[in-house]
Design a binder for these strands. Structure first.
Lengths: 164, 164
DNA sequence: TTTCGATGGTTACAAATGAAACCAATTTGG
DNA sequence: CCAAATTGGTTTCATTTGTAACCATCGAAA
C-alpha cells in the first residue's frame, strides 16, 4: 500500500454533507416564513413553539427550539413589537415572563402550519418509502447518539397522502 | 376528525431536526479546526478543498465546498495571511487566481485530516450497522431529491480541470 | 434580616454573514 | 476595432450572531 498523504473527500464527509443538506432544506423552507411575513428563523421558531405549546417562558422556548437566550430575547421582542405575542409577568416568580400568542399571532401561526407541513410532505414525497424510512431512522439514531433527542416519535413520517 | 387547529410539532419537523442535528455535529466538529488552529469554517473548508484537490480557483472552491464568493474571498485572504496558501495568476485568464497550499498549509491539512476522519468514525461508531446504512442512504437520497448531490467519488477528480 | 450565589432575561460589543456595489480582465456582437 | 455584457474576485454596508457583561429577582444560608 502506497503511503500517499491521507486525503479527506469533503463531498463524502458526513458532517459537511449533513450541514449542507440541512442548510439547503432550511434555506428553502425559510421562504415560507420569510417571504410571506418577513420573519427570521428565530422568530419563526418562537411563533411555532408558542403556537404548539400555548404558553412558555423564554427559557423554555430556548430549550424547546434549540435557541440561545439572546436569539429568543430578540425574537420575542420583535414578535411583541408586531403584537403577535404578549408577556405576562410570572406571579410567583417575577423574573420570568409567560409568553402567549395574541389573536394575530395565532392567525399567522395557523396560516403557516399547513404550509410547513406541505413543505415537509413535498420533500418526503420525493423519496421512496425505503428512503423515507432511512432518513427518519438515520436522523433519529444520530440524535440519540448525540443525546440530543427531544421526542422519540417517528410515526408521523409514514406516507405523504397515500402510499408510494 | 376533530377540528382543532393544526399543530406543528417542531421536535418532529424534519427541516428543524436536520438543522439541529447538522448544527450540533458541525459545532462539535469545529473544535478540531477552531481549537487547534483558530480556523473558521470557511477557512477549514478552503484548506480542506485545496488539500484534497491540489489547486483550485476561488470560484471552483466555492462550488466544491458550497461557499458564497465572499466567504471564499475572506477565507483565502486569511489563509494567505498565514502563508498557508499562495495565489498564482492565471496565464490565459488574468482574472482568476490559482490557489495552492504552501508547505505549511499542507502540513496543517495533513495534521487535521486524521482527526477529521477519526471524528466521523467516532460518530458513526455510535450507530449500529443498520443505522449507519440508514443515515448514509437517507442523506444521499435527500441530496439527490434536492438535486444538490456532488460526486460521490473523487475518482473523477483525477485530472486537474484541463479544458477539453 | 443580610448576604451570596444562582437564575431569567436584556444589552453591549465584536465577529461572521449576505446582498449589492464595485474593479479589472475577458468575451461578444457589431 | 470598440462598446456592452459577462465573469472572477474584492470591498462596503447593513444584518445576524455569539460571548460576555449586565440588571433584577429569587432561594438558601447565616
Amino acid at each position: 500500500m502506497a503511503m500517499q498523504p491521507e486525503i479527506l473527500e469533503l463531498e463524502n464527509f458526513l458532517p459537511y454533507r449533513l450541514y449542507r443538506l440541512a442548510d439547503d432544506v432550511s434555506r428553502e423552507f425559510s421562504r415560507i416564513y420569510k417571504d410571506s411575513h418577513g420573519l427570521t428563523r428565530p422568530e419563526w421558531r418562537t411563533l411555532s413553539g408558542l403556537g404548539q405549546r400555548g404558553t412558555m417562558t423564554a427559557t423554555e422556548l430556548g430549550e424547546q427550539s434549540a435557541m440561545h437566550k439572546t436569539k429568543v430575547s430578540r425574537a420575542v421582542a420583535e414578535l411583541e413589537r408586531r403584537r403577535w405575542l404578549t408577556r405576562t409577568p410570572g406571579e410567583n416568580d417575577r423574573r420570568v415572563e409567560h409568553l402567549t400568542l395574541t389573536r394575530a399571532g395565532l392567525a399567522a401561526y395557523r396560516e403557516m402550519v399547513p404550509l410547513a407541513k406541505a413543505f415537509e410532505q413535498a420533500l418526503l414525497a420525493k423519496l421512496s418509502v425505503n428512503e423515507r424510512a432511512s432518513i427518519v431512522k438515520g436522523v433519529l439514531s444520530l440524535e440519540i447518539a448525540l443525546d440530543r433527542r427531544q421526542r422519540p416519535s417517528a410515526e408521523e413520517y409514514k406516507t405523504p397522502a397515500g402510499k408510494g
